[in-house]
Each structure stands twice: as structure tokens, then as C-alpha cells.
């Protein structure tokens, strides 16, 4: 198999939603930011003097969850920034770039650090981005996913022209 991989260039099959589905949300972003805060709080409550095996286990679990959710924040912010926000939104919110960039930096800093202040700043920054998103988001006019079974002929005609 290694031989085949080296000889032939195997094409990629994308398993992500690169098709412009137009479905964006900020709940995941905000829940992840809140999770980072909660994990820092739990970590700070774990005794550092003579921690038990269970304390050590909990601490490591919190680090992992904090890391994962800070990463989710980063990914969600980058998706909104790169895919959702358009030039007209930049005109509407001149500080959009700066706010998103600051939120991404904070997500990264929260992976490096265990700091409740930075975790709270991350949530505030994410809320600012979510507020901009809420102001400009337009709900999809029709639910294409349900239309196939509801009215297949009309749906097919619309898609195939």
C-alpha cells in the first residue's frame, strides 16, 4: 500500500462542509468559552498541597477539557471570520477584525495559562463577536433539507432548473 501511495497521487475527498451551506451559529463558541472558565475554576479548587490520586486525575481531565474547548473557540472564531463575515460587515463593524483577532489570541492564551481573568476575557471577547454575528445574521428563507420528501417534484425542478 505504501508503494501505491508513493507512486500514485491519491486525490483528496473532503469531509467538511466547504459547500456554502449558510448555516452558522455562535452557541458552540459561547458554551466553549464558558467551559474554559469553569475548568479554570475547578482547577483552582483542586488542592495543590499533597493532592490525592483522584485530585491529580481530575486536574489532568480539566486541563484536557480546557485545551479542547479553547481549541473549539479558536476554530469557531476562524470559521465565522473566514466564512461568515463579509466585506459589508467590516464596513458595518470597523473593529471586527481586531475583535475577532483578540478573541482568537485569548483562546490561544487560555491554552497556555490557567488564569481566570483571561478565561473571563475570552468569554467577553466571544460575546462581542457573537453580538456582531446576531446583528447581521439572516435566517435561511427555506429549509431545503425537508423539501425533498415534502414536495419532491418542485424541489427537483428548482435544483435541476
Amino acid at each position: 500500500m505504501k508503494f501505491f501511495k508513493e507512486i500514485f497521487k491519491i486525490p483528496e475527498a473532503l469531509a467538511h462542509c466547504d459547500i456554502p451551506c449558510g448555516i452558522y451559529e455562535t452557541n458552540t463558541l459561547l458554551v466553549s468559552a464558558q467551559t474554559v472558565i469553569r475548568m479554570v475554576e475547578v482547577m483552582e479548587s483542586i488542592p495543590m498541597d499533597k493532592p490525592s490520586l483522584k485530585d491529580r486525575n481530575n486536574f489532568i481531565r480539566c486541563v484536557r477539557v480546557k485545551e479542547d474547548h479553547a481549541q473549539i473557540c479558536e476554530e469557531q472564531l476562524v470559521t465565522l471570520w473566514a466564512d461568515f463575515f463579509k466585506p459589508e460587515h467590516i464596513a458595518q463593524f470597523p473593529d471586527l477584525h481586531d475583535k475577532v483577532w483578540r478573541a482568537i489570541k485569548l483562546a490561544s492564551e487560555n491554552k497556555l495559562d490557567v488564569n481566570i481573568q483571561k478565561a473571563k476575557e475570552l468569554l467577553v471577547a466571544c460575546r462581542e463577536v457573537a453580538a456582531m454575528f446576531d446583528q447581521v445574521k439572516v435566517e435561511p428563507k427555506e429549509d431545503l433539507s425537508g423539501s425533498v420528501s415534502d414536495n419532491p417534484d418542485a424541489f427537483k425542478k428548482k435544483l435541476l432548473g
Binding site: C17, C21, L144, S145, V148, S149, F155, K156
Partner: peptide
């Protein structure tokens, strides 16, 4: 779902993939 001429597809991991609708 399948329909004559069209196939509706979606990703398994709904966190990463939205229902992207039908393809020919």
C-alpha cells in the same frame, strides 16, 4: 435520501457538517 436524479447527502459528525442538501 435518494430521489430520481438526486441524492441528498450529509456528514455523520453533525458538529462538523451541516445537511448540505442534494447532489446530482
Amino acid at each position: 435520501k435518494t430521489l430520481k436524479g438526486l441524492v441528498e447527502v450529509a456528514g455523520d459528525n453533525e458538529k462538523e457538517s451541516s445537511k448540505i442538501g442534494p447532489v446530482k
